[in-house]
Write a protein that binds this DNA or RNA. Structure first.
Lengths: 145, 145
DNA sequence: TCCATTTCTATTGATATCAATCTATTTAGT
DNA sequence: ACTAAATAGATTGATATCAATAGAAATGGA
């Protein structure tokens, strides 16, 4: 029988960047989800809606790329936001294959209510990192995506 | 109407650690999923099965905590692995509320086949980071979870 | 113009994620 | 021993994630 030594398991567990990033992603998602719950948003919905707060409504492709998420995931993520009346999806008159995403006034209001929560939560986790670690961490993460 | 300035949107987009970590998590997950596909595993299944490769079969709670994942997520994640005959879930004789998780010989074989893929993939992403960035990044991520 | 290719998005099916809730079992206080 | 509280998992329901596939519209070459 093929056996992987326990020491190898410990090595993989301690060094695997994928595992470390997934763990941190789950922990941070829970943290922000909890904090944002009073505003009625999850962390992903907050990020998505914030990325739609632009002068010109963007098409789906660039938004999915910005969030590093599959386009089908974006389609699915928009559904509950449309149902709640926070986001509208309209046909692009210049390219009828495409859709344009915009926030409704209600969506903007929800986002505005969530912003101070984001600020305080972010400041809190920022404090958990060594001095200046925040910028460094962002840089490292960006190199991976 | 409540309006968040576009400049604030850009600030949140550029500084939000939650967003950066989610993005990196999605990108790394895709990378490892693609690499591990020939072995028949996803990145999450690899991490989970590797964490079960111990001298003594662990109960579910500690495994969920190690992976920073909800216990119900672990229950769900075990299902396909049980169906494939790679993991067995047995009642803990010392505490009949609990379950013990173990790899089958087939599971160990799959894991052994996946290990070299993990090694080369990990070395590749390690090279994307500045010298010594790997250890630093792990430390920063650990501070968040 | 016509047609092949490309681009943009939707649908389906499988797994992943967590909150809320439930059952069974153990533990602790009396 | 009895009972209340705590603990370990399972189930349900909602959203998240991506691969594979399909459809519609735009683009480019002949």
């Amino acid at each position: 029988m093929i056996e992987i030594p326990f020491s190898t398991t410990l090595m993989v567990r301690d060094t695997c960047l994928c595992l470390h990033v997934q763990r941190a992603a789950r922990a941070l998602a829970r943290l922000f989800d909890d904090a944002l719950r009073p505003a009625g948003l999850t962390n992903g919905q907050f990020s998505l809606m914030m990325s739609l707060n632009r002068p010109e409504p963007p098409p789906m492709g660039p938004v999915a790329a910005l969030l590093a998420m599959d386009q089908t995931t974006l389609t699915a993520a928009l559904k509950p936001l449309q149902r709640k009346g926070w986001v509208t999806v309209t046909e692009n008159p210049r390219d009828r294959r495409g859709r344009l995403l915009s926030l409704t006034p209600e969506g903007k209001a929800v986002l505005a209510k969530a912003l101070p929560i984001w600020k305080s939560t972010h400041a809190m986790i920022d404090g958990k990192l060594p001095k200046g670690g925040s910028a460094r961490l962002r840089q490292d993460l960006q190199a991976l995506s």
